[in-house]
Design a protein around this nucleic acid. Structure first.
Length: 882
RNA sequence: GGGUGUUUAGCUCAGUUGGUAGAGCGUCUCCCUUACAAGGAGAGGGUCGGGGGUUCAAGUCCCUCAACACCCACCA
């Protein structure tokens, strides 16, 4: 860093300038690069890879910040630290974006063909891959870009194939025809977790199916009349006597006249609708099961695009009609036919595609699945036996509940962008094999389906470390990773699958702690989304308030319970103001370091105030370490804010101004100022990396070091414990605050100095004498005199009762005696209330016998204290009234 | 249908083994005191959602009710 004149530093912190140059400094020195050969203990994190389609949003900003805090903290605490960055190829999402671009040119992917389309998508991915990670640099992310990965890069793809083949060989991957969630827009199957349900107001239609060869009919209630052409039976409950006589009879499907049987199946709910259900195995998961039980062949009537199939079962006037248009027409036809008996309003849940919002069509289709049940066993055990810990703990329950009821995972997607399934079909015989490589492309043709994007992200913690090569240096040093930081919204999508796959393929849990934070919401608590227009762009916030301000503000809003975080633009003023405070306090200290040596603090020359601040710093160091270790990041921010602003700036720096005037104290005060600033900066560095780095390097004595980010993180030290002095300083604070309060009460301007008389009890007199200079300067006192604690209070004065002593301000012409009496009575009232409540306790024999001794002594002590003060105030009031 | 979370000062929210409630913002007073007005000093403001219970003691533990939010399941 170039030399700067402290006097030239601006009075307002310039975040933008600082952050750019500081990040560049770190990068140039390769401080983020991890060393797999280091003897130090490892600490590693893999980033939840953002999608290549995305730009940085607030959720990333929070996630990345929390990871960076952990990484920076551990780096300073002596760990060899690796943070692996990377991005996700995001199958459907990316394909959708590229297709959308094509559409704007009036093209579809089929116009290009698979190869050409993939080429185009790769171009798109390559162009966007680094963009979001570059944006993360604005957040100060200290990740190792030399290890950047992509879920679709060569190494990850190799891991994907390896895993697929091994699972297949183990019998855990199978292919078969089942009902899947089909998105007619994406033209692909999607998994259960990719299906989101929304409550919609629909209708329940009651349709009459006439009996064959006799009068009468059975009435069926359905929400999907367009599927009647796919009906294979009508089912009723076996115990439903309403229908017992009809079981086994045949009915006729209205409109087409195809004949189907009435069957009995326990799946039917007697009390819902009419108690009779149409069975459409090709288009409903439950019906599929019923159909299988009764040996019916499914009949497809809706195609992959959600249109009525052009087949013999469907009346020709409906061929090719969209399912909803067809529904309308069918209702009309049934009405005309008198087959529609009743239409009722009906609220029900409708599945939607997570990626495009299109209503899912349950469709019988040939797909690839992973048997999750056998894999889940170990993944459940690992959490139950504590190999993996969730923070906050309640997410374990959520995870376990899901895992214990897990169903097979549909992993094939009818897309082009993704890992093509490593299965090959013999062009002549149709035989299928599964292998990492195609044995002979002339004979074997690869399966066209690709894998769910989460299949590759599920391998992320080890595929990024060189797996399947378990001898790779990174794998040996940094796997398993330490902490996974993410939001609760992807526990099932991602976390659960990483745990499953990690345990299956490496035998180890991929991380030991899963730190789940809340989601970022707007100021009304709404989820941020582009369509709602309520997003806040982190880059805009960084430009406006600075990165450290953003980080500090967000961090301070993190609660241990992981509550969602509501933010608005103005909230970032909190962090900005704090950064500015750090900046200006630092400027003050730096300006006053002239003539200081490089020596450590001389402990023999410490004043009471010095000891107090060192003691406080030490406590803070202890708490901060323990809070970060326990993922109480928000608390960490609050502790540091409070210490730096309310203790260091508001009190110690003000006191230091007095001590610096005293030649005998000056040098050591400078050292203390510097030391506490230095340590505070280190403590703050993980949260506010740029400003702390910048200021730290401006401290002349720190030129020996390379950077704060590599300096040691402060820890608790017995040498810095000064409990007695810390307690004595309370007298300083109380005295000064009382006098300030008094000033305000009587409208005495700060510019007007007054004299005080301290009526000190013997035990407190030496302390008052030691802190005289602080009182004089900070409460604007001219002269201090002492008298006995028992001395009568001068009549025309205002008095502050501090601890057991009285501080009398003679203000003959300035005070309104009635006001002073009122002021004292108010204080007296407060004290009396407190005493009464405490005495009530002490008079309760059960309290005395049950409460811990400490508390009893404390209560007794407090009562005595109050009594002393009450006496003093009563005396005062009496003399004022006299 | 099952589950989780929330309910504390005007607003946004902290409050880990139970020991007489805190912060930021906002409000009111005063102050440009030679680091900082993105600042300093002082003040006011809460029967901790309702009800019940355990306890010497409950914002904190238990039960119950209410409101709101979310997750899982998906009976046509």
């Amino acid at each position: 860093m170039p030399a700067v004149k402290i006097e030239d530093l601006p009075t307002v912190y310039n975040a933008k300038e600082t952050e750019e140059s500081i990040y560049k400094f770190w990068e140039e020195h390769e401080f983020f690069k991890a060393d797999a050969k280091s003897p130090k203990k490892p600490y590693s994190i893999v980033i939840p890879p953002p999608n290549v389609t995305g730009v940085l949003h607030m959720g990333h900003a929070l996630d990345e910040t929390l990871q960076d805090i952990l990484v920076r903290y551990h780096r300073m605490s002596g760990y060899e630290t690796l943070w692996v960055p990377g991005t996700d190829h995001a199958g459907i999402a990316t394909q959708n974006v590229v297709e959308k671009q094509l559409r704007e040119q009036g093209l579809s992917r089929h116009d290009l063909g698979r190869d050409k389309f993939l080429e185009k998508t790769w171009e798109w991915a390559n162009a966007h891959k680094s963009r979001i990670l570059d944006q993360c640099k604005r957040l100060g992310a200290s990740f190792d870009r030399t290890r950047e990965r992509f879920t679709f890069d060569e190494g990850c793809s190799d891991a994907v194939k390896e895993v697929f083949v091994r699972l297949y060989e183990k019998g855990l991957i199978y292919k078969g025809a089942y009902i899947v969630n089909w998105c007619p827009r994406c033209q692909s199957a999607i998994s259960d977790v990719e299906t989101e349900y929304e409550t919609e107001q629909g209708h329940l239609w009651e349709i009459s199916y006439p009996l064959k060869g006799e009068s009468g009919a059975i009435i069926v209630a359905t929400t999907r009349p367009e599927t009647i052409f796919g009906d294979v039976a009508i089912a009723v409950h076996p115990d439903d006597h309403k229908y017992s006589e009809l079981i086994g009879k045949t009915v006729v499907i209205p409109l087409t006249g195809r004949e189907i049987p009435i069957i009995a199946d326990e799946y039917v709910d007697k009390n819902f609708g009419t108690g009779a259900v149409k069975i459409t195995p090709a288009h409903d998961p439950n019906d599929f099961e019923v159909g299988k039980r009764h040996g019916f062949e499914p009949i497809w009537v809706i195609d992959e695009q959600g249109k009525m199939k052009a087949c013999g079962e469907v009346p020709s006037n409906l061929h090719g009609l969209d399912r909803y248009e067809a529904r309308k027409q069918i209702i009309g036809m049934l009405e005309y036919n008198h087959s529609l008996l009743r239409t009722r309003e009906h609220e029900h849940n409708v599945g939607k595609c997570q990626r495009c919002g299109t209503t899912i069509e349950p469709l019988l289709s040939e797909q690839w699945f992973v048997k999750m049940k056998p894999l889940a066993q170990e993944a459940i055990k690992a959490v139950k036996d504590g190999r993996i810990k969730f923070i906050p703990e309640r997410w374990e329950k959520n995870y376990l509940g899901w895992m214990e009821n897990i169903r097979d995972w549909c992993i094939s997607r009818q897309l082009w962008w993704g890992h093509q399934i490593p299965a090959y079909h013999n062009k002549q015989t149709g035989e299928m094999i599964v292998a990492k490589e195609n044995p002979d492309p002339a004979i074997w043709e690869q399966e066209t389906d690709v894998l769910d994007t989460w299949f590759s992200s599920g391998l992320w913690p080890f595929s990024t470390m060189g797996w399947p090569n378990t001898d790779s240096e990174d794998f040996k040093k940094f796997y398993p990773t330490t902490t996974l930081v993410t939001g609760f919204d992807i526990i099932f999508f991602w976390v659960a699958r990483m745990i499953t796959m990690g345990l299956e393929f490496t035998g180890k849990a991929p991380f030991s702690t899963v730190y789940i934070h809340g989601l970022i919401r707007d100021e009304k608590g709404q989820k941020m989304s582009k369509s709602k227009g309520n997003t806040i762009d982190p880059v805009v916030i960084i430009d406006k308030y600075g990165c450290d301000a953003l980080r500090f503000t967000m961090t301070s809003l993190c609660t241990y319970g992981g509550q969602d975080i509501k933010i608005s633009d103005e909230r970032f003023e909190y962090g900005r103001n704090f950064a500015n405070k750090i900046w200006n306090a630092s400027r003050f200290v730096l300006m006053n370091l002239e003539g200081v040596d490089n020596n450590d603090i001389d402990f023999d020359k410490l004043t009471i105030a010095d000891k107090w601040i060192l003691n406080g710093l030490n406590d803070v160091a202890k708490e901060v370490n323990s809070n970060i270790e326990n993922y109480r990041i928000g608390e960490t921010a609050h502790i540091l804010y409070d210490f730096f602003w309310n203790s260091y700036c508001d009190w110690y720096v003000e006191i230091a101004k007095i001590q610096l005037q005293d030649e005998s104290l000056k040098l050591n005060t400078q050292r203390v100022l510097r030391y506490v600033l230095d340590m505070s900066l280190r403590l703050l560095h993980p949260i506010m990396p740029h400003i702390t780095e910048r200021v730290w390097q401006l401290i002349p004595q720190n030129t020996d070091f390379s950077a704060i980010m590599l300096a040691d993180y402060p820890v608790y030290s017995d040498k810095l414990v000064f409990k007695d002095e810390a307690k004595e300083m309370e007298l300083v604070f109380e005295t000064i605050k009382s006098l300030r309060n008094l000033r305000q009460s009587f409208n005495i301007p700060m510019s007007l100095k007054f004299d005080i008389e301290i009526q000190a009890v013997d035990s407190e007199k030496p302390i008052f004498e030691a802190i005289e200079s602080y009182i004089k300067r900070m409460a604007k006192v001219e002269n201090i005199t002492y008298s006995a604690a028992t001395a009568p209070v001068a009549k025309k004065s205002a008095t502050a009762v501090v601890s057991a002593s009285k501080i009398v301000v003679s203000l003959e012409n300035l005070i309104d005696f009635n006001a002073e009496i009122a002021r004292q009575e108010k204080k007296l009232g407060k004290l009396q209330n407190e005493r009464k409540s405490l005495e009530g306790r002490m008079n309760n024999p059960k309290f005395v016998s049950n409460a811990p001794e400490d508390l009893i002594n404390q209560t007794k002590g407090r009562i005595e204290e109050i009594l002393v003060q009450e006496d003093a105030i009563n005396e005062l009031i009496a003399s004022l009234k006299a």
